[in-house]
């Protein structure tokens, strides 16, 4: 099975369809039930904020949506294609061509410069923007030759965003993108994310335990103890710049 191509993708309004997804994993000697039966449909171009306490299963859900992890049971369809049965190779291709990840701790490769960290993606994507373009989008053109250790937290996260969007992904998955940042930098980063999602028509899913961030979403999902406990749509999202916490 080939990964879904963008051409086919456009005709399908539902991006994700999850049915009874569970996830159990072992950590050390402990069994962790991260997800306990999640049913969910996500549409294209939504800006989703995923709320929940620490350990509620947010990251696990995000990893499964992004093809980083497979559910223990249940079905995950991306544009009608079943992800849960894809081989490791296909999952890698899915991530490579469709998904951009942004992490709480940026996860930049310390031995590569900002520019090179973005190039890591443009090297393998199908129709990427150039690394310079991506850095331009996040306003870091002048920091292109700096190593992560020479960048502030906000700058590092913006490099991570540039790296995520450089492949022109259909899906941006952000795990606590502002978790390690101060308020001002956090808002700046969210603004960049919002702008990119709007301008590139990308679906974005943002995990946060910071409830006020939910105001910028078109849809807010809340997880508790591995279950989806709330699913609200927001007709009037607030621009990121106006968020306050």
């Amino acid at each position: 099975m080939a990964p879904p191509s963008p051409a086919v993708a456009a005709s399908e309004p539902v991006l994700y369809r999850l049915a009874n997804v569970t996830k159990t994993y072992r950590m050390g000697d402990v069994d962790v039930h991260a997800l306990r039966g999640v049913d969910l449909e996500l549409d294209a171009r939504e800006l989703v904020v995923l709320l929940g306490a620490s350990g509620s299963g947010k990251s696990t859900l995000l990893n499964i949506l992004g093809g980083l992890d497979q559910p223990t049971t249940g079905s995950v369809q991306f544009r009608g294609e079943e992800l849960s049965t894809l081989s490791d190779r296909r999952l890698t291709e899915f991530r490579r061509f469709h998904v951009g990840f942004i992490f709480q701790f940026y996860n930049l490769i310390p031995s590569l410069t900002a520019h090179e960290n973005v190039e890591l993606v443009t090297d393998i994507a199908r129709t990427p923007m150039t690394a310079d373009e991506a850095l331009e989008v996040v306003g870091l053109s002048d920091r292109r030759s700096h190593f992560p250790a020479q960048l502030s937290g906000g700058e590092q996260q913006r490099v991570a965003i540039a790296r995520a969007i450089a492949k022109r992904p259909e899906l941006l998955l952000c795990d606590e993108p502002t978790g390690a940042l101060d308020y001002k930098t956090g808002v700046l980063v969210l603004d960049v994310l919002e702008t990119i999602a709007r301008e590139l028509g990308t679906t974005a899913i943002i995990i946060t335990h910071n409830a006020p961030v939910a105001a910028m979403a078109t849809r807010v999902l809340t997880l508790a103890d591995g279950r989806l406990v709330a699913d609200e749509r927001n007709a009037q999202p607030v621009p990121a710049k106006e968020l306050d916490w």
Binding site: T92, F103, I109, K167
Partner: peptide
């Protein structure tokens, strides 16, 4: 570990 996970996340195969 973190770098390897990042590489996997951005689409490099294991």
């Amino acid at each position: 570990r973190g770098q390897i996970a990042t590489l996997a996340a951005v689409g490099y195969s294991s």
